[in-house]
Write a protein that binds this DNA or RNA. Structure first.
Length: 494
RNA sequence: GGCGGCAUAGCCAAGUGGUAAGGCAGAGGACUGCAAAUCCUUUAUCCCCCGGUUCGAAUCCGGGUGCCGCCUCCA
C-alpha cells in the first residue's frame, strides 16, 4: 500500500483542502451527527450519511483502519415537535395507541438502521444514544462550571461563549451579530448575557418524559452539549474527522466545538467536513410541500406514476456530484443516473465475459481511480474512470478484479465476482416456456404471435432480448418494480 | 442586515494557471422481422457579465448580475 497517497479533504475551519494526517493510521476516528429519531430519515439525511460511508470506504480502500461513532438523538423535544408537525401521522398514531416517546424513538431508530442497510452503509462502530449519555453531559457542564464559563439561575444554565478560544472560526460568526440558537422561547433569551450564549441545562416542563436529576435541579440538557459530550466520551478530543450537514455548521458545530475548547483547551476534531444539502426540484424539502422523500418514496416512483428506484440507484445519483456541491434532486435526474448505472453494470458484465486482457491498462486506471478518491472524495471523477475502464478493452479476470475492487467503495452492484454477474438470476419456468414459444413463432415467421407473446412476458415483469445471432435471453424488465435481489447489494452484516 | 456557497453544452456534472473528464438526452452508422439492448462515430474555439494580473485564466484579483443555504428545529 502506497502510504504516501495522502487523502485530501476540505476542512471547514481552515477552508482549504488539507491532507489527512491521522494520529493512528490504523484507527482514523470519525464522528457523524446522526438523526433525531422521531420520523423516517429522508434522502437529504441519507446524502449526508453517505458522505461518512464514502469516507470510511475510501479510507479502507487506501489502507487505513477506521473507528466511527454516529449518535442517535433519542430524547428530542417530542412535545415541541409534535406541535410543529402536528399532523405527523406516525407520532399521532403512536400517541393515539398509547405509545411513549421512548417507544417512538426505538421505532424510528430501527427504521434508520434499516435505511442505512438498504443504502449499503457500513455500520458505525458505536451508536451513542443521547438518553444514555446524560451523566457525561452533566459532567461536561460541571467541568465548564469549574472553568467559570457557565452562568444562570432558576434551573437554566448558559454557556458564556467568550470563554471559548477561537469562537466563530468554524462558521465565520462574529460576536454581537445574528441571533443565537435556543431551544427555549423568547423568555429564555432574556436570561442570557449575549445572543450567542446558549443553554446547557433546562428545567423539565410538566409532562416531559425525558428528564434527569442534576446538581441544578431536575431537567434536561441542551442540544450542543449532547453531541460534544458523546463525541468526547467515545472519541476523546482531537479526533480526526467530524461529519455533518452544512446546516449544522452554525450554530451546532460551532457551539459543540466551543464547549470542547472551553472545557479541555483542545480542538474537538481536527478536520470538519460538511455535506451540502439536497434540494428537491430546487426547493428545500419540507413536510408541508410534500417533497420530503424517503427511500420508500423513491421505490414508489414519481407522484404521477412511473418507474421506481432502488437505494443503489439513488446512491449512484448522489455520487455523480461532489459532496460539497448542492444537489438538486429531480425525477428526471434520477432517471438519467439510473440509466448510467445500468449501462455501467452492463459494460462491466460484458467486459468480464471477454477473454482476459488489459492488465497494463488496468494499472493506469487503478491509479486514476485512486487519485480521484484521494482528492477530496471526488466520486464524479472516480465514476468517469469506471465508465472509461468498462469500455477500455479490459476483459475477463482483469475486468472482474477492477469491478470488485472499486465496488468496495462505490457499492452500486458492479458485477465483479465470477458467477455473480447481473442478469444471471433464475427465470421462472412459466416465463421461460413463454419465451420458447415466442422463439418458435418468431422462427416460423409468425411475428404477430411472437409480439403478443412478448407482450405477455413483459406484463409478467420480464423482457426478452434477441441477440445478434438469433439467440434470445431473458432478464428482468427495467420497468419492473425494483426488487430487493436485483441490485445484488444485499444488506451488509452489521 | 451578517455569514457561507454556487454560476461550465439541451440537462446533470468534473476541472482551482497551460489550452474544456464523464453521464443523460440528441444526431449518423453497424446489428435487427420489428423493437430493445449493444457497439462505433459525433455534439462547448469556449466556461454569467465588465475590467485587471500573466507569455498564457473557466481557473488568480477587483467590480457587477443571478441563484441557493445558514443566522429559529433542521442533514
Amino acid at each position: 500500500m502506497d502510504s504516501q497517497a495522502a487523502l485530501l479533504l476540505r476542512d471547514s475551519v481552515s477552508r482549504r483542502k488539507v491532507p489527512l494526517v491521522p494520529a493512528d493510521p490504523a484507527r482514523v476516528t470519525i464522528y457523524t451527527c446522526g438523526p433525531t429519531v422521531y420520523r423516517y430519515v429522508h434522502i437529504g439525511n441519507l446524502r449526508t450519511y453517505l458522505l461518512t460511508d464514502l469516507l470510511v470506504r475510501t479510507l479502507r480502500f487506501l489502507g487505513y483502519g477506521t473507528y466511527t461513532a454516529q449518535n442517535i438523538t433519542d430524547m428530542g423535544h417530542m412535545h415541541q415537535e409534535q406541535l410543529e408537525l402536528g399532523e405527523d401521522k406516525v407520532i399521532a398514531a403512536a400517541r393515539a395507541a398509547g405509545r411513549t416517546a421512548r417507544e417512538i424513538a426505538a421505532f424510528f431508530t430501527e427504521a434508520f438502521f434499516r435505511d442505512c442497510r438498504r443504502m449499503g452503509f457500513l455500520p458505525a462502530d458505536v451508536y451513542p444514544r443521547a438518553s444514555e449519555h446524560v451523566p457525561e453531559m452533566i459532567a461536561l457542564v460541571r467541568r465548564l462550571e469549574e472553568k467559570g464559563a457557565v452562568y444562570g439561575r432558576d434551573g437554566y444554565l448558559y454557556f458564556d461563549v467568550t470563554r471559548a478560544p477561537g469562537y466563530g472560526a468554524l462558521s465565520g460568526a462574529a460576536l454581537g451579530e445574528g441571533t443565537p440558537a435556543e431551544r427555549t422561547g423568547a423568555e429564555g433569551q432574556r436570561r442570557k448575557r449575549r445572543p450567542e450564549d446558549f443553554v446547557l441545562w433546562m428545567p423539565a416542563e410538566p409532562g416531559r418524559e425525558f428528564q434527569w436529576d442534576s446538581p441544578w435541579g431536575r431537567g434536561w440538557p441542551g442540544w450542543h452539549s449532547e453531541c460534544a459530550a458523546m463525541a468526547m466520551a467515545h472519541l476523546g478530543t482531537g479526533y480526526d474527522l467530524n461529519v455533518g450537514g452544512v446546516d449544522l455548521r452554525f450554530p451546532h458545530h460551532e457551539n459543540s466545538r466551543a464547549l470542547a475548547a472551553a472545557a479541555t483547551g483542545k480542538e474537538l476534531a481536527r478536520i470538519w467536513l460538511h455535506a451540502a444539502h439536497l434540494l428537491v426540484d430546487g426547493r428545500k424539502m419540507s413536510k408541508s410541500q410534500g417533497n420530503e422523500y424517503t427511500l420508500d418514496d423513491l421505490a414508489g416512483g414519481p407522484p404521477g406514476g412511473g418507474k421506481g428506484y432502488s437505494p443503489a440507484e439513488f446512491r449512484y445519483y448522489c455520487m455523480t456530484l461532489h459532496y460539497a456541491t448542492p444537489m438538486n434532486f429531480t425525477w428526471e435526474g434520477q432517471a438519467a443516473a439510473s440509466r448510467g448505472l445500468a449501462r455501467l453494470r452492463e459494460a462491466f458484465r460484458k467486459a468480464a465475459e471477454r477473454a482476459t486482457a488489459g492488465s497494463d491498462a488496468a494499472a493506469a486506471l487503478r491509479e486514476r481511480f485512486r487519485a480521484a478518491l484521494s482528492d477530496d472524495l471526488n466520486l464524479p471523477r472516480a465514476l468517469s474512470v469506471a465508465h472509461d475502464a468498462a469500455r477500455s478493452g479490459i476483459g475477463g479476470d482483469v475486468a472482474r478484479a477492477l469491478a470488485a475492487e472499486w465496488d468496495r467503495v462505490l457499492r452500486v452492484g458492479l458485477p465483479g465476482e465470477p458467477g455473480a454477474a447481473a442478469g444471471a438470476e433464475e427465470v421462472p419456468a412459466e416465463i421461460a416456456a413463454l419465451a420458447r414459444e415466442r422463439d418458435a413463432a418468431r422462427r416460423a415467421g409468425d411475428f404477430s404471435a411472437a409480439d403478443s407473446l412478448r407482450a405477455r412476458i413483459r406484463a409478467l415483469g420480464y423482457d426478452v432480448v434477441d441477440a445478434g445471432g438469433g439467440e434470445s435471453s431473458m432478464r428482468k424488465s427495467p420497468d419492473a418494480p425494483e426488487g430487493t435481489a436485483k441490485d445484488g447489494t444485499g444488506p451488509e452484516s452489521r
